[in-house]
Design a protein around this nucleic acid. Structure first.
Lengths: 360, 360
DNA sequence: GCCGGGGCGGCAACGGGTTGCCATGTATTG
DNA sequence: CAATACATGGCAACCCGTTGCCGCCCCGGC
């Protein structure tokens, strides 16, 4: 009878199993990684011994020779931004189905941090999804040269991409505002490093031409609540009746900022956001916004990445385009006819107070 | 002059560098991992050669011998829940400072998924932070036996823990409601698998005794907006004037649900949440809530974990307790004297309509 | 009875670093 | 000047699986 005791605290290896099962280590290895290559009875015996000993294959050691870690990285621009939650869910679901673990990396809206994190992680993962990357095109290509990469929310030649149909979303938003009588739309820009930011602005320009609506841009602002509030202040000096914000967080910030200054949304100004985050539905007034299929973005990108990892060529032709839809809530309304064309009444109202006072 | 060309597509290894720098591989290794162990000039030369060749040390290979991957896992209960965003930030910041990469795992509120993910990841990380784990105590201890573990938002003997001072938060909330004239508080419970859920309820019981406020519990409900809305319906059949919700998301859901049924918050019912998520400040009415130091939670837990990984014993005595504070906004008000004691007027109001209608 | 082929298992060489130990050469000390 | 200590670098074993290749055995076919 073989010895069952073993030095405690030591990890069980294939060698231990091999000894106990009276086969060579290679057979143990094959019993797990290529069961067809070994006699089924032997395999069964090995599996039982392994079970008894509590053997678990060491993924690092395996990765060393196979150079497959069964991990993928998902890089997101800002974990604070709720849009990514659903994207992450979609990605993780698909990854888990394929037996992959997802390493989530938060770039904190920083080109530098993102590069550093990608650099650090690259060699430990089998592929990378870059969601709303803030890196330069060339940096992305560099990464793509070393590992399978799928880019989300950005189009880039030679790298597989998944994007949403923002032009159509913007177009729908512009139509909607046009129907409400607005003949002028102000785009409140987000980060310049954000690819969709440019797309949305250009799409608005184009839609404006076709629909005969004047457009202009202010910003850039940080794509956050605070950024939106700052934008609201600037909107004060350059009034508007219809605003399209880069994203929902900014839109909510704008609404907050405006109402703090006594401007009524949607009475005086209509505001449209982008993304349809959960909060869009719970703020007052409910935010009219262009809804992106977040979950689908994450899952589609990841699915594509996995096929690339499995050896597929990676479809670099046209980006994969996901549909969007306009969700109309209460932040948009028929244009208020009272304010003057260039200087709505509300511009002269009370100045900005500090943040909402808190009771003791 | 040595040959600079090398087979393309092959990774550069220490052997390549050694050849070029005319030293042995071990010296190259030491030049990176133990610079003090090698002559500074030699080290410098090696580093230059490595740079020129584009050498990057392979973390997997390193991990194989050192069994240190420089990765930690951060397991969170639900990435959709915004509280975790700040926790993740705090954790990631500290981890990055210590040259660690954070692997984020979303357990999707599922015991099973959480276990599976931890199981899969455990052997590839140097330590684990379990934030609001839904696993059983015994499962956690099992994990803690194999890797350094710090538990967040849960107290557990023999495992280092970081918790917030929920009893004090609940007490403050109860005092606040008491001062507003409420003599009865309903606790809307979250997941039973959630440790703070139990703590909050027990703390409320206790505070109720001392402050002579009657308390009761309804639930459990899912700790989400939807869960809160369901709770609102139940509140309809068992009316209350003051509600303490397990978390902010539920509180917001409750407010939404109630106001949809024509109940005024805070006029008819005061609602207090927990966590102070960003949305608490942007909803109408602004949510009175117990603010947790989210960022600090993440950073404290991670800091502790890193010291354990570095070999410190892991402080398993008392859990580390982080302070909370009550943020009073507009969802709490003086108790409305009109409704009858057991059956406020609003109970007989119009029935629940469907979700907010959307314009085409 | 002989030969070819397939099933199965073992040997040994990796993969890319790390590290204990030893062999130099130089600096320090008595 | 001898003896000792230290700084520095190399050797080789090791971490834990994976896999190409080879050998053995058994089976079937002619």
């Amino acid at each position: 009878m073989p010895d069952h005791t073993r030095p405690p605290g030591k990890r069980v290896t294939i060698y231990d199993v091999a000894l106990e099962a009276d086969v060579s280590p290679s057979t143990v290895s094959r019993a797990f990684s290529r069961p067809s290559r070994v006699n089924s009875e032997t395999a069964e015996r090995i599996r039982r011994v392994a079970e008894r000993l509590g053997y678990r294959t060491n993924p690092l050691a395996r990765a060393l020779t196979t150079s497959r870690t069964q991990m993928i990285a998902l890089v997101i621009a800002d974990i604070t931004n709720p849009v990514y939650a659903e994207i992450v869910r979609g990605a993780q679901e698909v990854a888990a189905d394929g037996e992959y673990t997802t390493v989530l990396i938060d770039a904190q809206e920083s080109d530098r941090l993102e590069r550093a994190a990608v650099e650090r992680t690259m060699s430990t993962v089998d592929g990378i999804v870059l969601a709303s990357s803030r890196m330069s095109d060339s940096a992305i290509r560099m990464v793509a040269k070393q590992r399978p990469v799928v880019v989300l929310n950005r189009a880039l030649a030679d790298v597989p991409c998944v994007v949403t149909d923002d032009p159509r979303g913007v177009r729908r938003a512009a139509e909607h505002l046009g129907e409400l009588g607005h003949d002028h739309i102000t785009y409140v820009a987000g980060p310049q490093a954000s690819w969709p930011n440019g797309v949305r602005w250009r799409s608005l320009l184009e839609a404006g031409m076709e629909l005969e609506i004047k457009v202009r841009q202010i910003g850039p602002f940080s794509p956050t609540l605070a950024g939106g509030e700052r934008a609201a202040q600037e909107l004060c000096t350059r009034p508007a009746t219809a605003v399209l914000a880069f994203n929902d967080q900014m839109a909510i910030g704008i609404i907050r900022g405006l109402s703090r200054m006594g401007v009524n949304v949607p009475g005086d100004v209509s505001v449209v956001g982008f993304d349809n985050i959960l909060a869009a539905d719970i703020v007052t007034p409910g935010l009219t916004t262009v809804a992106a299929p977040l979950y689908a973005e994450g899952s589609a990108a990841t699915r594509h990445l996995l096929t690339m990892i499995e050896g597929a060529p990676g479809h670099t032709g046209r980006p994969m385009v996901l549909p969007v839809r306009l969700v109309v809530r209460d932040s948009t309304a028929v244009r208020n006819p009272s304010p003057g064309r260039t200087r709505p009444a509300w511009v002269r109202q009370r100045p900005v107070p500090g943040p909402a006072a808190q009771l003791p």
